[in-house]
């Protein structure tokens, strides 16, 4: 199941940000997201979160969205896993 979350999250990032499959496959836990990927601006953050809700099946509250959430791929994945645990 954890592998599925990982793959779904990579696919969502590829779809939302228009990144290639190769690019998202190379993400590791330390890969920086917000502030590191030029494709990820505040408008696409909203799209990313809503798409995560729709595809992974949970609700993200406003106060869960902070700088740490989108700091790295690892932090976003840990958040998604915690939501689905």
């Amino acid at each position: 199941m954890n592998i599925d979350i990982d793959q779904s999250l990579r696919q969502i990032l590829a779809d939302v940000l228009g990144l290639s499959a190769t690019q998202v496959a190379a993400f590791d836990a330390e890969t920086g997201l917000f502030g590191h990927l030029p494709e990820l601006d505040s408008m696409s953050v909203a799209g990313l979160l809503t798409e995560m809700e729709d595809r992974l099946g949970f609700i993200i509250e406003d106060d869960e969205v902070d700088g740490e959430l989108l700091e790295s791929y690892g932090s976003l994945l840990a958040f998604a896993r915690a939501k689905l645990a």
């Binding site: 408008m43 809503t50 969205v65």
Partner: peptide, 25 residues
């Protein structure tokens, strides 16, 4: 409802970037 949620979220996030706190609810 998804469209509305997305629009509200965009507004909350851009308010936050401008240093204002708004809540979608």
């Amino acid at each position: 409802a998804t469209i509305l949620r997305q629009l509200l979220r965009m507004r909350v996030l851009s308010a936050r970037e401008a240093g204002r706190t708004e809540r979608a609810d």
